[in-house]
Protein backbone atom coordinates (compact mmCIF):
# COMPACT_ATOMS: atom_id res chain seq x y z
CA UNK A 1 0.00 0.00 0.00
CA UNK A 2 2.34 2.63 1.16
CA UNK A 3 5.76 1.68 -0.04
CA UNK A 4 7.02 1.42 -3.57
CA UNK A 5 5.87 -1.79 -5.02
CA UNK A 6 9.30 -3.09 -5.84
CA UNK A 7 9.39 -4.78 -2.47
CA UNK A 8 10.51 -8.26 -3.01
CA UNK A 9 11.65 -9.39 0.39
CA UNK A 10 15.26 -8.88 -0.53
CA UNK A 11 16.83 -12.31 -0.53
CA UNK A 12 19.51 -12.33 2.10
CA UNK A 13 22.11 -14.34 0.29
CA UNK A 14 24.43 -15.21 3.10
CA UNK A 15 27.89 -15.46 1.68
CA UNK A 16 29.96 -18.08 3.40
CA UNK A 17 32.65 -16.46 5.47
CA UNK A 18 35.38 -18.83 4.45
CA UNK A 19 37.10 -18.31 1.11
CA UNK A 20 36.55 -21.01 -1.46
CA UNK A 21 39.40 -23.08 -2.84
CA UNK A 22 39.37 -20.98 -5.98
CA UNK A 23 39.64 -17.78 -3.97
CA UNK A 24 42.53 -19.17 -1.94
CA UNK A 25 44.29 -20.29 -5.07
CA UNK A 26 43.86 -16.98 -6.85
CA UNK A 27 45.03 -15.05 -3.83
CA UNK A 28 48.36 -16.86 -3.98
CA UNK A 29 48.37 -17.04 -7.76
CA UNK A 30 51.15 -14.55 -8.44
CA UNK A 31 53.53 -16.08 -5.91
CA UNK A 32 52.78 -19.62 -7.07
CA UNK A 33 53.28 -18.59 -10.68
CA UNK A 34 56.55 -16.90 -9.80
CA UNK A 35 57.94 -19.96 -8.02
CA UNK A 36 56.75 -22.38 -10.71
CA UNK A 37 58.25 -20.22 -13.43
CA UNK A 38 61.58 -19.95 -11.64
CA UNK A 39 61.64 -23.69 -11.09
CA UNK A 40 60.68 -24.47 -14.66
CA UNK A 41 63.30 -22.11 -16.06
CA UNK A 42 65.96 -23.58 -13.80
CA UNK A 43 65.10 -27.06 -14.97
CA UNK A 44 65.16 -25.97 -18.60
CA UNK A 45 68.43 -24.15 -18.21
CA UNK A 46 70.38 -24.87 -15.01
CA UNK A 47 72.46 -21.80 -15.74
CA UNK A 48 69.46 -19.54 -15.36
CA UNK A 49 69.41 -19.36 -11.59
CA UNK A 50 72.52 -17.23 -11.34
CA UNK A 51 72.92 -13.84 -9.78
CA UNK A 52 73.68 -12.08 -13.02
CA UNK A 53 70.70 -13.32 -14.97
CA UNK A 54 68.35 -12.68 -12.06
CA UNK A 55 69.79 -9.18 -11.71
CA UNK A 56 69.23 -8.57 -15.39
CA UNK A 57 65.65 -9.82 -15.22
CA UNK A 58 64.88 -7.68 -12.20
CA UNK A 59 66.40 -4.67 -13.91
CA UNK A 60 64.28 -5.12 -17.02
CA UNK A 61 61.19 -5.41 -14.90
CA UNK A 62 61.57 -2.05 -13.15
CA UNK A 63 59.68 0.18 -15.65
CA UNK A 64 56.96 -2.45 -15.95
CA UNK A 65 56.58 -2.62 -12.17
CA UNK A 66 56.23 1.14 -11.97
CA UNK A 67 53.69 1.32 -14.82
CA UNK A 68 51.62 -1.53 -13.45
CA UNK A 69 51.72 -0.18 -9.89
CA UNK A 70 50.29 3.16 -10.98
CA UNK A 71 47.56 1.67 -13.14
CA UNK A 72 46.66 -0.73 -10.31
CA UNK A 73 45.28 2.21 -8.35
CA UNK A 74 42.91 3.04 -11.20
CA UNK A 75 41.86 -0.61 -11.49
CA UNK A 76 41.26 -0.75 -7.72
CA UNK A 77 38.83 2.15 -8.17
CA UNK A 78 37.00 0.07 -10.77
CA UNK A 79 38.35 1.81 -13.87
CA UNK A 80 41.13 1.11 -16.32
CA UNK A 81 43.97 3.22 -17.64
CA UNK A 82 44.91 2.27 -21.20
CA UNK A 83 46.96 5.43 -21.72
CA UNK A 84 49.93 4.58 -19.49
CA UNK A 85 52.15 3.22 -22.26
CA UNK A 86 51.48 6.08 -24.65
CA UNK A 87 51.93 8.62 -21.87
CA UNK A 88 55.21 6.93 -20.95
CA UNK A 89 56.42 7.17 -24.55
CA UNK A 90 55.45 10.83 -24.65
CA UNK A 91 57.33 11.36 -21.40
CA UNK A 92 60.53 9.85 -22.84
CA UNK A 93 60.35 12.41 -25.64
CA UNK A 94 59.67 15.21 -23.17
CA UNK A 95 62.64 14.06 -21.12
CA UNK A 96 65.01 14.10 -24.07
CA UNK A 97 63.76 17.53 -25.16
CA UNK A 98 63.72 19.16 -21.72
CA UNK A 99 66.99 17.78 -20.41
CA UNK A 100 69.25 20.39 -21.99
CA UNK A 101 67.27 23.23 -20.36
CA UNK A 102 66.21 21.77 -17.03
CA UNK A 103 69.18 19.54 -16.25
CA UNK A 104 68.81 17.75 -12.93
CA UNK A 105 65.25 18.98 -12.45
CA UNK A 106 64.01 17.18 -15.55
CA UNK A 107 63.01 14.02 -13.69
CA UNK A 108 60.78 15.98 -11.32
CA UNK A 109 59.37 18.08 -14.12
CA UNK A 110 58.49 14.93 -16.08
CA UNK A 111 56.78 13.29 -13.14
CA UNK A 112 54.84 16.47 -12.37
CA UNK A 113 53.82 16.90 -16.00
CA UNK A 114 52.62 13.33 -16.47
CA UNK A 115 50.86 13.49 -13.13
CA UNK A 116 49.03 16.58 -14.33
CA UNK A 117 48.12 14.88 -17.59
CA UNK A 118 46.81 11.88 -15.64
CA UNK A 119 44.79 14.22 -13.45
CA UNK A 120 43.31 15.79 -16.56
CA UNK A 121 42.10 12.39 -17.72
CA UNK A 122 40.68 11.74 -14.29
CA UNK A 123 38.81 15.03 -14.35
CA UNK A 124 37.40 14.26 -17.81
CA UNK A 125 36.29 10.84 -16.58
CA UNK A 126 34.67 12.14 -13.40
CA UNK A 127 33.23 15.38 -14.68
CA UNK A 128 31.80 14.20 -17.98
CA UNK A 129 31.03 10.68 -16.74
CA UNK A 130 32.81 9.14 -19.71
CA UNK A 131 33.85 5.53 -19.14
CA UNK A 132 37.48 5.44 -18.12
CA UNK A 133 38.55 3.14 -20.91
CA UNK A 134 37.24 5.59 -23.51
CA UNK A 135 38.92 8.58 -21.86
CA UNK A 136 42.21 6.76 -21.66
CA UNK A 137 41.86 5.22 -25.12
CA UNK A 138 41.36 8.75 -26.41
CA UNK A 139 44.25 9.90 -24.24
CA UNK A 140 46.40 7.14 -25.67
CA UNK A 141 45.93 8.32 -29.20
CA UNK A 142 46.28 11.99 -28.29
CA UNK A 143 49.55 11.37 -26.41
CA UNK A 144 50.91 9.30 -29.29
CA UNK A 145 50.06 12.09 -31.70
CA UNK A 146 51.74 14.74 -29.55
CA UNK A 147 54.80 12.55 -29.16
CA UNK A 148 55.02 11.96 -32.91
CA UNK A 149 54.70 15.66 -33.67
CA UNK A 150 57.19 17.01 -31.15
CA UNK A 151 59.76 14.32 -31.85
CA UNK A 152 59.19 14.45 -35.58
CA UNK A 153 58.44 10.73 -35.45
CA UNK A 154 61.95 9.67 -34.60
CA UNK A 155 64.10 8.99 -31.56
CA UNK A 156 65.56 11.97 -29.73
CA UNK A 157 69.03 11.25 -28.43
CA UNK A 158 69.99 12.05 -24.89
CA UNK A 159 73.53 13.34 -24.78
CA UNK A 160 73.80 14.24 -21.12
CA UNK A 161 73.78 10.88 -19.41
CA UNK A 162 74.58 12.17 -15.93
CA UNK A 163 70.97 13.04 -15.17
CA UNK A 164 69.87 9.42 -15.39
CA UNK A 165 73.09 7.83 -14.33
CA UNK A 166 71.89 7.23 -10.79
CA UNK A 167 69.23 4.84 -12.03
CA UNK A 168 71.83 2.60 -13.63
CA UNK A 169 73.75 2.11 -10.38
CA UNK A 170 73.53 -1.03 -8.28
CA UNK A 171 72.68 -0.98 -4.61
CA UNK A 172 75.19 -3.12 -2.73
CA UNK A 173 76.64 -4.03 -6.07
CA UNK A 174 73.80 -6.43 -6.91
CA UNK A 175 70.34 -4.89 -6.80
CA UNK A 176 69.71 -2.48 -9.66
CA UNK A 177 68.81 1.01 -8.51
CA UNK A 178 65.84 1.18 -10.88
CA UNK A 179 64.31 -1.85 -9.22
CA UNK A 180 64.98 -0.41 -5.78
CA UNK A 181 63.16 2.75 -6.84
CA UNK A 182 60.24 0.63 -8.07
CA UNK A 183 60.18 -1.28 -4.78
CA UNK A 184 60.30 1.91 -2.75
CA UNK A 185 57.45 3.31 -4.85
CA UNK A 186 55.26 0.27 -4.31
CA UNK A 187 56.07 0.21 -0.60
CA UNK A 188 55.51 3.93 -0.16
CA UNK A 189 52.18 4.03 -1.97
CA UNK A 190 50.98 0.90 -0.19
CA UNK A 191 51.97 2.37 3.13
CA UNK A 192 50.22 5.65 2.48
CA UNK A 193 47.07 3.78 1.53
CA UNK A 194 47.25 1.56 4.57
CA UNK A 195 47.91 4.36 7.05
CA UNK A 196 45.25 6.77 5.83
CA UNK A 197 41.54 6.49 5.05
CA UNK A 198 42.52 6.36 1.35
CA UNK A 199 42.54 2.59 1.21
CA UNK A 200 39.05 2.40 2.63
CA UNK A 201 37.82 4.95 0.13
CA UNK A 202 39.51 3.33 -2.85
CA UNK A 203 38.21 -0.14 -2.02
CA UNK A 204 34.72 1.14 -1.33
CA UNK A 205 34.76 3.01 -4.65
CA UNK A 206 35.92 -0.07 -6.50
CA UNK A 207 33.59 -2.55 -4.84
CA UNK A 208 30.49 -0.40 -4.89
CA UNK A 209 30.71 3.14 -6.16
CA UNK A 210 27.17 4.12 -5.22
CA UNK A 211 27.50 2.77 -1.69
CA UNK A 212 30.76 4.67 -1.31
CA UNK A 213 29.17 7.88 -2.53
CA UNK A 214 26.16 7.48 -0.26
CA UNK A 215 28.53 6.88 2.64
CA UNK A 216 30.08 10.26 1.93
CA UNK A 217 33.39 8.94 0.58
CA UNK A 218 35.09 11.48 -1.72
CA UNK A 219 34.66 9.20 -4.74
CA UNK A 220 35.40 11.79 -7.40
CA UNK A 221 38.55 13.06 -5.73
CA UNK A 222 39.79 9.54 -5.08
CA UNK A 223 39.37 8.65 -8.74
CA UNK A 224 41.15 11.77 -9.94
CA UNK A 225 43.96 11.05 -7.49
CA UNK A 226 44.27 7.50 -8.82
CA UNK A 227 44.60 8.76 -12.38
CA UNK A 228 47.13 11.35 -11.22
CA UNK A 229 49.34 8.75 -9.57
CA UNK A 230 48.96 6.50 -12.60
CA UNK A 231 50.16 9.33 -14.83
CA UNK A 232 53.05 10.20 -12.51
CA UNK A 233 54.12 6.55 -12.51
CA UNK A 234 54.14 6.58 -16.30
CA UNK A 235 56.53 9.55 -16.05
CA UNK A 236 58.83 7.74 -13.63
CA UNK A 237 58.82 4.67 -15.86
CA UNK A 238 59.79 6.93 -18.76
CA UNK A 239 62.82 8.20 -16.85
CA UNK A 240 63.84 4.59 -16.23
CA UNK A 241 63.48 3.74 -19.90
CA UNK A 242 65.56 6.75 -20.94
CA UNK A 243 68.26 5.79 -18.45
CA UNK A 244 68.52 2.47 -20.25
CA UNK A 245 68.16 3.52 -23.86
CA UNK A 246 69.79 6.98 -23.79
CA UNK A 247 67.10 8.37 -26.01
CA UNK A 248 63.46 9.29 -26.07
CA UNK A 249 61.14 7.91 -28.71
CA UNK A 250 57.44 8.36 -29.48
CA UNK A 251 56.85 4.60 -29.50
CA UNK A 252 59.39 3.50 -26.92
CA UNK A 253 56.94 2.24 -24.29
CA UNK A 254 54.01 1.36 -26.53
CA UNK A 255 54.62 -2.35 -26.25
CA UNK A 256 54.45 -2.14 -22.45
CA UNK A 257 50.66 -1.67 -22.29
CA UNK A 258 49.76 -5.30 -22.64
CA UNK A 259 52.43 -6.55 -20.22
CA UNK A 260 51.32 -3.93 -17.69
CA UNK A 261 47.66 -4.95 -17.92
CA UNK A 262 48.76 -8.58 -17.77
CA UNK A 263 50.88 -7.86 -14.69
CA UNK A 264 47.90 -6.32 -12.90
CA UNK A 265 45.47 -9.13 -13.64
CA UNK A 266 48.01 -11.92 -13.15
CA UNK A 267 48.72 -10.40 -9.76
CA UNK A 268 45.12 -11.14 -8.90
CA UNK A 269 43.72 -7.62 -8.82
CA UNK A 270 40.09 -7.87 -9.92
CA UNK A 271 39.33 -5.89 -13.04
CA UNK A 272 35.94 -5.12 -11.49
CA UNK A 273 37.64 -3.09 -8.77
CA UNK A 274 38.11 -3.16 -5.03
CA UNK A 275 40.10 -6.34 -4.64
CA UNK A 276 43.85 -6.33 -5.14
CA UNK A 277 47.01 -4.47 -4.20
CA UNK A 278 50.16 -2.91 -5.54
CA UNK A 279 52.23 -5.75 -4.13
CA UNK A 280 50.24 -8.14 -6.25
CA UNK A 281 51.03 -6.10 -9.33
CA UNK A 282 54.72 -6.17 -8.39
CA UNK A 283 54.59 -9.96 -8.31
CA UNK A 284 52.57 -9.96 -11.52
CA UNK A 285 55.14 -7.77 -13.24
CA UNK A 286 57.91 -10.14 -12.18
CA UNK A 287 55.94 -13.09 -13.56
CA UNK A 288 55.45 -11.31 -16.86
CA UNK A 289 59.11 -10.35 -17.06
CA UNK A 290 60.24 -13.90 -16.29
CA UNK A 291 57.95 -15.18 -19.02
CA UNK A 292 59.45 -12.71 -21.41
CA UNK A 293 63.08 -13.55 -20.68
CA UNK A 294 62.30 -17.20 -20.06
CA UNK A 295 60.57 -18.09 -23.31
CA UNK A 296 63.72 -18.04 -25.45
CA UNK A 297 65.50 -20.06 -22.78
CA UNK A 298 63.07 -22.93 -23.07
CA UNK A 299 63.26 -22.63 -26.82
CA UNK A 300 59.92 -20.99 -27.54
CA UNK A 301 60.11 -18.35 -30.30
CA UNK A 302 59.43 -14.90 -28.94
CA UNK A 303 56.47 -14.62 -31.33
CA UNK A 304 54.55 -16.73 -28.83
CA UNK A 305 55.03 -13.99 -26.27
CA UNK A 306 52.08 -11.99 -27.61
CA UNK A 307 49.81 -15.01 -27.76
CA UNK A 308 50.77 -15.82 -24.21
CA UNK A 309 49.93 -12.28 -23.04
CA UNK A 310 46.54 -12.52 -24.67
CA UNK A 311 45.82 -15.89 -23.14
CA UNK A 312 46.97 -15.01 -19.63
CA UNK A 313 45.07 -11.73 -19.61
CA UNK A 314 41.81 -13.46 -20.45
CA UNK A 315 42.49 -16.39 -18.12
CA UNK A 316 43.58 -14.22 -15.20
CA UNK A 317 40.60 -11.89 -15.56
CA UNK A 318 38.28 -14.88 -15.73
CA UNK A 319 39.75 -16.20 -12.46
CA UNK A 320 39.66 -12.94 -10.52
CA UNK A 321 36.48 -11.33 -11.82
CA UNK A 322 33.85 -10.51 -9.21
CA UNK A 323 30.84 -11.94 -11.01
CA UNK A 324 28.41 -11.20 -8.22
CA UNK A 325 28.72 -7.54 -9.12
CA UNK A 326 27.94 -7.56 -12.81
CA UNK A 327 24.85 -9.46 -13.82
CA UNK A 328 25.17 -8.65 -17.49
CA UNK A 329 28.68 -8.82 -18.90
CA UNK A 330 29.04 -6.59 -21.91
Amino acid sequence: MSAPVLTTPAPDAVVPGRPTVGQRLTSFMPVIALVVLLAALTVADPGFLTLSSLTAAVRTSAPLVVLAAGATLVVLCGGIDLSIAALCSLATVFFALWLPDLGGLTTFAIIAATGAIGALQGVAHVLFRIPSFIVTLGGMSIFSAIALVISDAGPVRVVDRDATNWLTLYVGGVVPMAFVVALVLVAAVSLVLRLTPLESWIRATGYSESAARLAGAPVDRVKIAAFTVSGACAGLAAVMLVSRNFSGSPTMADNLLLPAVAAIVVGGTAITGGHGSLWRSLAGALVVTLLRVGLPIVGVPSAYEQILYGAIIVAAVALTLDRSKVLIIK
Binding site: A211, L214, D322
Partner: peptide, 11 residues
Protein backbone atom coordinates in the same frame (compact mmCIF):
# COMPACT_ATOMS: atom_id res chain seq x y z
CA UNK B 1 18.91 -0.90 -1.35
CA UNK B 2 21.16 -2.13 1.39
CA UNK B 3 23.17 -4.53 -0.73
CA UNK B 4 24.07 -2.15 -3.53
CA UNK B 5 23.89 1.24 -1.86
CA UNK B 6 23.97 0.76 1.86
CA UNK B 7 27.07 -1.29 2.40
CA UNK B 8 30.27 -2.33 0.70
CA UNK B 9 29.77 -6.09 0.82
CA UNK B 10 33.31 -7.46 0.67
CA UNK B 11 34.68 -4.94 3.17
Amino acid sequence: ERKTEGMVGPM
